[in-house]
Design a protein around this nucleic acid. Structure first.
Lengths: 368, 368
DNA sequence: GACGGGCATGTGACGCGTCACATCCGCGCC
DNA sequence: GGCGCGGATGTGACGCGTCACATGCCCGTC
């Protein structure tokens, strides 16, 4: 008796039900695609929804199902190509699966900041977490909060194998390293990312493994912070001695800075010093000289993250492998991949490909 | 009588109330910092919350208050420095204000994609929207959905003035242009971004205005897409004629590509052709040569977006100006600015500053 | 000593989509 | 004709934090 025509309130299933001449439960069944609804009834309900501009109340559904259908992304606040692209892909994949994405970025890597960010996400009742950040620290913070939410990262750690993700950074790093070795380089420096980034560690491991396979002695990797500024400073420092002929940088930004230092030293990049980067950021082809780098399929990585996470959310916790292949998701993914490929106007020639990683020779130029 | 000790259910205020020996309403009052609670009672309740690991149920609160305390960000899916940094800042500012951020990126700029993304955000019951994307199209989509959610963009349009934001891109573009003019250049090309990006339009307007002030004739701006690849292609094309001596690029990526083309043509950048970029991405200092560019304070921009949006959300709709200055927010913002400044290890020298925009001379090098 | 006022706290209803269960209808069967 | 069955639909309760209102209490006041 209370609610009249155009109340201030948003329409609820009861409003729809009244208009369609059915019970609110029937409306609910239509919403949930229950099979036991006559087509004619369903049509009437849908009409009523349409004319009322009905939108299900997320809060109410959440309350009763105690599922938020939201996942959280915890990112470092540094703006890098890889993480950003992954976030986009994660968001799209999650949306396609009917999940919302809530982000929290880390103003710093202090434990308190991490805990605050996690707390924020948990307040949003996220059902799962994708971590694109210093992973070991986040893991510690999660443990300290003692709240168990499924989460995935871009790469597995020793501590919990089941979060593994298979774009294989180790292989990518090996490819990059092998490339330099095949060019004849025997003293190669490695610029790595922050230690507690799993990606950095994996790439470093790949580098060391490949060097070891070739029986080439290595110097200690240089711990960087992903930035071009660091690459530049490192280059300035290392070039004072010139006890090397090649550098494998863990990402393209640091490689850019290093290139800068090489130019500053009056040296020639393909000639005197070879550099290989990692990530294949869109700008890499326009560095001076164009950078040889290892392409990472970040969107694919993001999509796999979501698939893995959703597999854990929907299936029983513990399974891990087949979740990536659940039918509805596989279909969408294939579609997206196809369209992405069609729209890519890249002019570089891919070199040997292997599980989502490839080495690119920038603009066809011989590798440097 | 039903719920015992450790049920499967998460604890509710009633559980807390029982443990603290008060009514559920008292617990609610503690949660909402009601003043009329005795300190001793509050302490008891807080203790109970602590020991139960109580976390307010977001859904229930949302349901009853019909406020989600979430804002949406609609971003283009291109990974650019400016948008990404803004998103981070928006997220942090929103979090500081107790809002969550839900993102939706646009796989394409097709109207359907925009509508789908908006729909997704509205499904999440976001209370407001920050748009970092082709803005005119989004506006159309919003209108077509006929759902009125407050939203802000990075810059005002003619259509709806009250979304204005004050990091002044026009001034920034004027500074860049003036710089080239002061160097003596009289034939200057402008590489602009996609037309329906407000930022692109504003920078173009600034360019044209400054040129006009100096009575220098202009050629039509070259419509780009923000990418380095485009800058490269544009450079290739333009350099066939060399009917210009300087270029003002709407962002640093396109400038990078252009620089590449200049090198390819065997020309010297400070000497033969001058280039000024826009954004001051962290990599700009390491281009060859280091790029002169206009720094944008994207984090500040993001923060202002949030302040503006929250002002609209919290205050009565219609007010616009003073909302940015609401006390709690001003305090936080100041704090964050201070810390950001302290941690910035930039080595460049800022040139004349004006409302969040400054021209940087990379590494002290004379401008090119 | 009765009354008004303010403070601290309690009571019950409410919102909205879902769940468990009830009801109704038509049909086939013995 | 009564019974059971299954499909389609309705009924009422529930979850949890908040709102509006009620209650109890202490204090001062005339």
């Amino acid at each position: 008796m209370t609610s009249d025509v155009t109340a201030g309130r948003a329409p609820s299933i009861r409003d729809v039900a009244r208009l369609a001449g059915v019970s609110h439960q029937t409306v609910s069944r239509v919403l949930n695609a229950s099979p036991s609804i006559r087509d004619e009834t369903r049509a009437r309900v849908l009409d009523a929804m349409e004319s009322l501009q009905y939108r299900p109340n997320r809060a109410a559904r959440m309350l009763v199902t105690s599922r938020s259908r939201a996942i959280g992304i915890l990112t470092s606040n540094r703006v890098h190509y890889g993480p950003s692209s992954s976030v986009m892909a994660i968001e799209e994949a999650a949306r396609a699966a009917g999940y919302a994405v809530v982000t929290a970025s880390l103003p710093s890597s202090e434990p308190e900041a991490i805990i605050a960010a996690l707390d924020h996400l948990l307040d949003q009742a996220v059902e799962g977490l994708v971590v694109i950040a210093p992973q070991t620290r986040v893991f510690d913070a999660l443990a300290s909060l003692s709240i168990r939410v499924p989460y995935v990262t871009m790469q597995s750690t020793e501590r919990d194998e089941w979060h593994a993700l298979s774009v294989d950074q180790i292989t990518g790093a090996r490819i990059a390293t092998r490339h330099l070795l095949e060019l004849g380089h025997r003293s190669i420096y490695h610029l790595t990312g922050p230690q507690d980034w799993i990606e950095a560690e994996a790439r470093m491991r790949g580098f060391l493994a490949e060097m070891s396979d070739w029986d080439v002695p290595t110097t200690a990797p240089i711990l960087g912070d992903w930035t071009a500024d660091f690459g530049y400073r490192a280059g300035k420092e290392l070039l004072r001695f010139r006890d090397f002929t090649a550098v494998f940088s863990s990402n393209d930004q640091m490689a850019l800075g290093f290139l800068h230092a090489v130019r500053d030293a009056g040296l020639d990049c393909p000639g005197d010093i070879s550099i290989v980067g990692f990530d294949d950021i869109p700008e890499a082809a326009h560095f001076a000289p164009p950078l040889t780098t290892v392409r990472q399929d970040f969107p694919e990585l993001g999509r796999r993250c979501v698939a893995l996470l959703l597999g854990q959310l929907e299936g029983e916790p513990g399974t891990r492998t087949p979740s990536c292949r659940s039918s509805w998701y596989g279909r969408r993914r294939r579609h997206r991949l196809a369209s992405a490929r069609a729209s890519a106007p890249r002019s570089r020639q891919p070199l040997p490909t292997r599980d989502g990683v490839e080495l690119t020779a920038s603009r066809g130029r011989v590798l440097h």
